[in-house]
């Protein structure tokens, strides 16, 4: 039996396949997302282990709690890595099917996000590599700055359609386009 992987935003993105504008909302087609919770008292050790993982980005989601996001590392392989390196330190759960990763980029991306986010996104307060669990368009979201003008939002699958449409609406004044990420 074959299962065909279908992204939850597939219906919303059909018809948007033009070339992308400077302001672009890329939806990662098959991201790897794990949530990691440290054992009590082992938070610092867990953080060190996570920081040394290759090819992943670690986002803060609470004290002793992280989201590990990757575009390149496959789910199975990251699951093994986390299992092996986290014994006694933390527990990790695969969230890849439950979360949607949206990548916003463009010179005015902060202006777009400011319409629905209450986190200070100035480079001094939120530098590249910073992340925060917060609220975006009234939905719980994890925000990370991956580059000077690039942000990634991790939202739960059930809210993804709503957040996606809201962000496009907010990006309309900058002619924001949307599509699945090439990678």
């Amino acid at each position: 039996m074959n299962y065909v992987h279908r992204h939850v935003l597939e219906d919303l993105i059909t018809g948007f396949e033009g070339s992308s504008n400077p302001h672009h909302l890329a939806v990662l087609k098959r991201p790897t997302v794990f949530s990691v919770l440290a054992r009590p008292g082992r938070e610092a050790d867990a953080r060190n282990v996570l920081a040394n993982l290759q090819g992943v980005s670690v986002r803060i989601s609470g004290p002793g709690e992280w989201l590990v996001v990757s575009e390149d590392v496959a789910i199975d392989s990251l699951a093994r890595t986390l299992q092996d390196s986290g014994t006694g330190l933390f527990d990790a759960v695969d969230q890849s099917d439950g979360r949607v990763v949206l990548r916003l980029s463009g010179p005015q991306v902060r202006k777009i996000l400011a319409k629905c986010l209450a986190v200070d996104l100035h480079a001094d307060a939120f530098p590249v590599g910073a992340s925060a669990a917060t609220q975006c368009c009234h939905a719980a979201a994890n925000l990370a700055r991956t580059d000077q003008d690039t942000f990634e939002l991790v939202v739960s699958r059930s809210f993804a359609g709503f957040v996606f449409e809201e962000i496009l609406e907010m990006g309309r004044e900058f002619a924001m386009t949307a599509g699945f990420s090439a990678g």
């Binding site: 609470g62 925060a132 669990a133 719980a140």
Partner: peptide, 10 residues
Amino acid sequence: HWHHAFGCRR
């Protein structure tokens, strides 16, 4: 008591 429901959930 406040619950930070949309942030750290503490």
